[in-house]
Design a protein around this nucleic acid. Structure first.
Lengths: 241, 241
DNA sequence: TAAATAGTGTCTTTTAGACACTATCGC
DNA sequence: GCGATAGTGTCTAAAAGACACTATTTA
């Protein structure tokens, strides 16, 4: 910030200030579907609609710390792949007052997902249908386990669509895909992740080649146990930059 | 935002609120170098250091609108490729008070760049050296016309590095490259843009193939004028999704 | 041994890099 | 015609899709 006058810079009261919140897009893989955790609103506005977990940013708290605190306090887990997503600041996005929200992606392993459901029973998993999400179009449909289509509060449908697009965009050149998996995983499961996020089938042999050629995954020499048929080899992710 | 108590939601005074600003990363191509527009601070803190233009977000103003207003009021131009970049919210990023800033990319054509310099004489162009910017490392060096290395205020070096990385990441699959060019441009000039952003040389024939195969550029049938040697054909950008 | 999935081999297509070559313009 | 840049052709290498094939395990 520069070129502001002395007054602007030093008198905090000269401008009314907006509230700032963080909202979490909690995503995990449930079965083979990309699934978000949502809470149902009990109060106006948007009572009955479904919303992303969120909370206010304290005055002495960094944005990332606020998001982590919300994850701990309102979701009951302390580990997830964390990434700032986008900041939503339309004037009327909340009818009560001016609230600017910084949305975060929080990607969970299946274990973290289960922990969240256990510790935060008010959160409901809802599978995300992204067939309507294109480069421009951003129609997300959120469906509960019983098949009911859930209606999202505020601008949370926008936020969710932004999250899906971000995820898709980063899938090929970053390590976000591994955020959904435990330390050891099969190649088939990794392919499930990619198919869930991209929304379409993935060529098996080309996929395996690509993953191995990237040098990101290392065979562990161990195999799955308790499978009905031939057990697959377990790999682990190894960062290398 | 959900799962907040009634009080949290309805009493705006229960939390002290941070100030929210927008900062603009104004980038253009000057010669063949990626160049940012910066203002020198005259007051504490960071007096003498260089900073991105910015300003407070009004209580009844959307984030995007605030960024556009700052562009008009403090840069003196009304058109640029606009894109929200990232939100910076470390507690101590400004020593005076808690300020969260939403950074915006503002990419200018050469004409807009010249307009900005004419209308906002306090802004200084500084070429951005990104040789230190890798996937992880984010060392940006900013050099004035006279070769002097400029020191950046606040966390603006972080913001600038984030901008460069974003630009690089989007260069291949989006249309950001065209934001630096006038409506009609030569392929060589488009290649200059890509080389400036990627920081390295680009293969000519492969580049031309790629650009034409993408279907984004259309030959206009007209050519450059007043060139010293063979004039190149002028192309125009045509969005197609 | 049958069922089912893990994992491989190979052909084709596409895309990109290297680099020399031709074309065209101002002077 | 010379200098200099515009623009093309072609060879090669790397990456991705298609798809059939083999391998291995459980029940």
């Amino acid at each position: 910030m520069t070129e502001t006058t002395f007054l602007e810079e030093y008198d905090p009261e000269i401008y009314r200030r907006p509230s700032v919140t963080v909202d979490l897009v909690l995503l995990g893989l449930s079965g083979n579907r990309l699934t978000a955790l949502l809470g149902q609103r009990t109060e106006h506005p948007h009572a009955g609609k479904w919303a992303l977990p969120g909370g206010f940013v304290y005055i002495d708290e960094a944005l990332d710390d606020a998001a982590l605190r919300v994850l701990r306090e309102k979701v009951g887990i302390d580990h997830a792949h964390f990434e700032q997503l986008y900041t939503f600041g339309a004037v009327d996005r909340d009818p009560r007052m001016r609230i600017i929200t910084v949305a975060y992606l929080a990607l969970m392993t299946e274990a973290a997902f289960a922990d969240a459901l256990a510790h935060a029973p008010h959160l409901t998993p809802a599978s995300v249908d992204m067939s309507g999400v294109g480069v421009r179009a951003r129609a997300v449909t959120v469906v509960a386990k019983d098949g009911e289509r859930l209606s999202l509060a505020f601008d949370h449908a926008d936020i969710l669509a932004t999250a899906i697009l971000r995820l898709r965009g980063k899938l090929d050149y970053s390590d976000v895909g591994f955020a959904f998996l435990p330390p050891r995983f099969t190649l088939r499961r990794l392919q499930d992740v990619h198919e869930a996020i991209s929304g379409g089938p993935v060529n098996k042999s080309a996929f395996r080649r690509r993953m191995i050629d990237k040098g990101w995954i290392v065979p562990t020499g161990t195999r799955e146990t308790a499978t009905a048929f031939r057990p697959a080899e377990l790999f682990r992710f190894e960062r290398q930059f």
